[in-house]
Structures are given as C-alpha cells and as structure tokens.
Amino acid sequence: MKKRSNPISYLGWLGIVGVIGINTGDFMLQLFLIYFIFFTYRNMPADELFWLNIRKSATRAFILEIILNSVMIILITILEKYNISSAITSAIRISIIRGFGIIFLIALLFFIVMLAWYGKQERKSVEDIYDNNKY
C-alpha cells in the first residue's frame, strides 16, 4: 500500500514564488520562502490529533491577524480623519500595502510556531507515557 504524504506539505510548493522573488529582487515575493517549512510535514501522519493541532494553531493565528489588521485599519483611518492622506506620497501608500503583507507573514509565522509547539507537546506526552509504563 502506497503511503500518502500529508496534505499540508503541499503548501511547501508556494516557496517557489519566493525563489522567483529572489530572482526579481522583490521583497514581498521573497516572503513566500517561509512556505518551504511545510515540506517538513511530508512524512508526518495526518491523524486526528494532527488536524486538531492545525485547528488550534489556525484559530490563534486568525485571531492574531484580525487584531493586527484592525490596528492597521485604525492607523489608516486616523490618517484619513486628520486629512494627512493628502500629504501621503505613493511611497507611504506602498508601505501601507507592505504592512498588510508583513501582518500576514507574522500570522503565518505564528501559525507555524504554534503548530511546532503542539507537535513538541504531543511528542513529550507520548515519551512521558512510554517512560511511566517502563518497568
């Protein structure tokens, strides 16, 4: 029977966009290099506990992204309210767009770190159970 790879590992292919970013020198495309980390899940079994860890990590990352996006929107609203937007140059507008990209990167990194942390917790609990059952 052929062993299927973990579906999360397919996200690693998005890292190719980061390689394109290196070749073109575009900073925002280079952020896609972080997706190569998902290739490490290729041989991990996709069982119920793994999907539970995905759900918990994704929920926390989603909440973090909502909070950071809200702060960014509040900052943009303040700029608009005090009519500072008329003085905003195109460089500042590009910085605002990049800010949303960086917020996405922060949420993605948070998701990856939380997923790794839950995996480490799972391995530690299995080792503790194994050590306690040893005679």
Rank of each mutant, 00 (worst) to 15 (best):
K3L: 01
R4N: 03
P7C: 05
L11N: 02
L11R: 06
I16F: 14
G18R: 02
G21C: 10
I22L: 15
D26L: 14
D26I: 15
F27K: 07
M28W: 13
L29T: 01
L29E: 08
Q30V: 02
Q30H: 03
L33W: 05
I37H: 10
F39E: 06
Y41I: 06
R42V: 12
N43S: 13
D47F: 02
D47L: 03
D47C: 13
D47T: 00
F50P: 03
R55H: 01
A58I: 08
A58D: 10
T59S: 04
R60G: 09
R60L: 04
F62E: 03
E65Y: 14
I67N: 09
N69D: 10
N69I: 12
S70Y: 14
M72S: 06
I73Y: 14
I74P: 12
I78E: 06
L79H: 02
E80D: 07
E80N: 10
K81V: 11
A87D: 09
I88M: 15
A91V: 13
A91R: 12
I92T: 08
I94Q: 08
I96Y: 06
I96T: 02
F100I: 08
G101L: 00
I106D: 11
I106A: 09
I106W: 07
A107C: 09
L108F: 05
L109D: 02
F110Y: 12
F110K: 10
F111R: 06
I112F: 09
I112W: 12
V113I: 07
L115P: 01
A116M: 11
G119I: 05
K120R: 14
K120A: 14
K124E: 15
K124I: 04
V126Q: 09
V126F: 05
E127S: 14
E127D: 13
I129A: 09
D131Y: 06
N132M: 10
K134W: 08
